[in-house]
Amino acid sequence: MGYDCIVCAKQVPDTKRITGEAMKEDGTVNRAALPAIFNPEDRNALEAALGVRDAHGGTVTLISMGPPSAAEVLREGLFRGVDRAILLTDRRAAVSDTHATSYILSCAIRRLPHDIVFCGRQAIDGDTAQVGPQLAEKLGITQITYLEEPAVLEGRTIRARRNVGSGFELVQADLPVLVTVMESANTPRPPAARRMMKYKKARTAGEVARELGQETGEAAAAAEVERRCQVLAEKGLLIETWDLGTIEADLAWCGRLGSPTKVHRVQWVKLAGGEYREFPATDEGVRELVTELIEEHTFG
């Protein structure tokens, strides 16, 4: 029978590679100086969905909400096997907190058939793990957080093992459900070479317009952009672009306006550095250190 799976993926700065240049003078993040990657646990979410399709058939649709550059994440999804890729982008969605983000995603997902929605447990830039549960609430569906093993599907029920920190819980629920997936749940498949050959040419309308502009040195004519998109669409190479209008989102719940939480202040963590007392690694030095720790009653 097959299942319709949706995967939500975020393009994130690679927080492991943060260097000095990644922060601007004013303490805000210079996203341009950071390599952008497919959020790691969203890869596991994608793999979980592809696994369901391998076993039962059905479809996998990948949605990424973000700036136009998030098209990269969608191409990577196409390399790995998704059937449909949707870029959800709109200036009016900028600075959405998890509340607004989950609202916008819910508006998009309502327009798509969905038996199972897969999200990564959390994104490495915010580490909030909030979007999954908040999206489930807005869709009015059951949430199964912290999936740690491939889920088992039988008819309209899903059986899943949740990692609850101090152990696990094996749960069963009727579809539709939203599942948040942990790194331990699976090993994401590598991109398929044949698909890469084909889908590296996949583009969003925005990218088509930009590339056309670069070729001609002037602003791209709408008619020509449309013609090229048409050609791409016929070959299955057009990455769809949706905005807040497409999904009929209520602007009061999007972007800054729709975000209850606001940033009060951001500080770049500077390490103090070098203010420790050094003891030589010799017998003498170590004895002195231990003596000091005993004297200040840290030891004993």
Binding site: P13, T15, K16, I18, A22, M23, G27, V29, I124, D125, G126, D127, P260, T261, K262, V263, H264, R265, V266, Q267, W268, V269
Partner: peptide, 18 residues
């Protein structure tokens, strides 16, 4: 004032909800 690390611990953000 809700104070939390973000960006893999590289920044400390203070969040409010008024």
């Amino acid at each position: 004032l809700q104070i939390r690390p973000a960006f893999g611990g590289n920044i400390i953000a203070t969040i409010v909800n008024y």
